[in-house]
Design a protein around this nucleic acid. Sequence first.
DNA 1: TAAAACATAACGACCGGTCGGTTTTTGGAG
DNA 2: CTCCAAAAACCGACCGGTCGTTATGTTTTA
Lengths: 199, 199
Amino acid sequence: MNNLQRSAQTKKSIMEAATSLFAREGYDSTGVAEICERAGVSKGAFYYHFESKEAVFLALIDTWLNTLETTLNDVTYQAKSVPDGLLEMAGMMQPIFENNQFFMGLFLELWTHANRNEKVRQATIAPYRRFEETFTRLIKRGIEEGTLENVEPEIAGQLLLSLSSGFFLQASLETEQGNWGKKLQESIEILLNGMKRRN
Amino acid sequence: MNNLQRSAQTKKSIMEAATSLFAREGYDSTGVAEICERAGVSKGAFYYHFESKEAVFLALIDTWLNTLETTLNDVTYQAKSVPDGLLEMAGMMQPIFENNQFFMGLFLELWTHANRNEKVRQATIAPYRRFEETFTRLIKRGIEEGTLENVEPEIAGQLLLSLSSGFFLQASLETEQGNWGKKLQESIEILLNGMKRRN
DNA sequence: TAAAACATAACGACCGGTCGGTTTTTGGAG
DNA sequence: CTCCAAAAACCGACCGGTCGTTATGTTTTA
């Protein structure tokens, strides 16, 4: 292995180890030594590749949110109609809900530290705003194509984002594997049709 | 001051100090010494009243969730119609959203540790389920009184709970004071009316 | 041979919890 | 009301251990 491959491999090992440990134990409760042990590298290697423990966390946030964003964009762009797209999106979330031990824990860790650490907050807010914009754009598209009522796009976008986030939270608390993708789908169906009785 | 008052006062001081510190710095980053300093008591007093740092956290969870539950129940029982009740509830959340530096931080801390610590999980899940039931009952009532469509109460209840939780999350990230109570109201209006265009 | 990549041991700060001692309150006895 | 001993409440120095980071040395690649 040449230096480039070796470096990349080590870095990858560290990030993978950190991902699962942060997700399971939390950022504060996970020690650098623990990460190193699981990654099969030494502390020297760790601090050769990362400036600090925090730097690893920030790197993880970056890759994770980018993955999520790409997935989201793919789904919304490919959908024929907007209501269909929303329902598909809910289905797409299923795999994420399923590895909850992995992602849910990281998701929570992310939110918590975004509230205290300025760097984490910055790394979180930006993609989060883009999520919101994606939803808002989707709503606008739906109104234009005539499949959605004339709701306020900003409010509806925020509604969708909150609903998704709330489902993440709920799913993280449950121990048994509920079918969260389907539950989210059914919720979105209700949202599309409305709850209030018409006369 | 007699012993009863003295005890109560000290305990109160400790819990208040812990509340604001946990909310701002997080559970792990807040030291017992720090809590004691802010509360104006010594470590001896702290460990006289609480078995451990965790015990304080559990006590806080208990009082906080009870407050929230009482508020929620009051609103839903007093409402004339269910759609009105839902909108009022959203308005009632406004004061909670406003002291976000206090409550939002604690909310996040609660969720994070519920995911790792079994005791915290137990203390969280029970009231959380009751929230869900309250929402579900509300939906059933709405269907019975004829103000709501014939949606599945369990799904709709979960939807409302997720939406509320998601709003808490969002509000905790924002630095500027958005009017989250009103935003939640508008979201619920959309939810009541539905988003899909009828033909 | 130089530079990159990694290993190991040790440091220093911190933190939850303990423990022996001190102050304050209590509830009678005189 | 006064005194006093016991219990309750509180104090604060200290311990054992952990953890992030660093300094120094070693191996691997260029």
